[in-house]
């Protein structure tokens, strides 16, 4: 396509691009601000204002933060939850979704309805808490894991993916004498890496960022996941500021360093996150 560019086109492009760059700066600046705070000296970070670069560069805040054993405990708990949620979740969801993609299976529609109904109605916070309490899972990381692994939406997405797979290979394997389990684990799953990765990343990010569930179900500080830990640091530091106790201990830069440390894992996998999350939105919209 050959485009004839005229004056108004140039003006449009310049204005549009500048606006978008401005928006990008607005999106990024808060993170940059936090990074600069965490790398500035206590005195400078408390002075505030706009940061172009860290002032009086120092790693003091990070040294202070990583010395606390609690951040490592929380880090470990978060990784533990995210890892198990992802692995078990992908396994259980695909195991539930695959049979639902088989039209000839009796009860298929009823079971699908059972899955979808959870999406539009739920028992609510308190009854759920009481059930988890009766199962003896309050104050256990397994509460977070078990409640997150199977979601109706993920199941539907996977089911639609399995339905779209060509059936010829499965049929050939069946004629060769392979049973459904063998077909599923050795043929279907390896063909479904894209959707497995997408659902896996959804589960991992949801688990990593989950705040409400740990808030409700965890009491022990030893079990805190990162979001709860951050919340506690922020509350604690704010309290210290109001009572004047924390005046000496770089309040702002400590909060900043804690926040940056917890964002780092997300940033590290961000290219994959972006790719597979966008793919997931497409899967969802194709299904409608």
């Amino acid at each position: 396509m050959k485009k004839r560019k005229n004056f108004s086109d140039y003006v449009f492009d310049i204005v549009n691009t500048s606006l978008l760059i401005f928006i990008s700066i607005v999106m990024l600046y808060p993170f940059w601000h936090e990074l600069c705070l965490s790398l500035s000296s206590a005195a400078e970070s408390t002075r505030g204002g706009i940061f172009i670069i860290p002032r009086q560069f120092t790693l003091e805040a990070y040294k202070l933060v990583i010395r606390s054993s609690f951040i490592w405990t929380s880090f470990y708990n978060s990784i533990y939850c995210a890892f198990l949620t992802t692995v078990i979740g992908v396994l259980f969801t695909s195991m539930l979704a695959y049979p639902l993609s088989k039209k000839e299976l009796m009860g298929n529609r009823s079971i699908s309805f059972v899955v979808v109904f959870c999406m539009i109605f739920n028992g609510g916070m308190i009854p759920t808490y009481l059930v988890v309490n009766n199962l003896g899972l309050v104050n256990s990381l397994w509460a977070l894991i078990l409640m997150a692994i199977v979601t109706p939406y993920n199941t539907i997405i996977m089911k639609n993916f399995f339905t779209s797979l060509p059936t010829e290979i499965e049929e050939a394997a069946f004629i060769d004498g392979a049973g459904p389990l063998r077909i599923f684990f050795t043929i279907v799953l390896p063909l479904s890496k894209a959707v497995l990765a997408t659902i896996g990343l959804w589960l991992a990010v949801a688990s990593w960022n989950n705040f409400m569930m740990p808030l409700i179900y965890l009491n022990d500080r030893e079990l805190y996941t990162l979001p709860l830990y951050i919340r506690q640091v922020i509350d604690g530091q704010l309290l210290a500021r109001t009572t004047g106790e924390g005046a000496q201990s770089a309040v702002e830069s400590v909060i900043g360093a804690t926040i940056i440390i917890t964002i780092i894992p997300i940033i590290c996998v961000y290219p994959y996150l972006q790719k597979y999350f966008v793919k997931g939105v497409m899967l969802g919209s194709v299904k409608g």
């Binding site: 195991m95 539930l96 059972v114 009481l130 988890v132 459904p180």
Partner: peptide
């Protein structure tokens, strides 16, 4: 075998989605 595959997922939904509905 298909029904067998669905058991863990359905059990999870039953415990954490449907049991709370009864708790209403």
């Amino acid at each position: 075998y298909y029904y067998l595959l669905m058991i863990p997922g359905l059990l999870t939904l039953l415990l954490f989605r449907y049991a709370p509905m009864g708790g209403i």
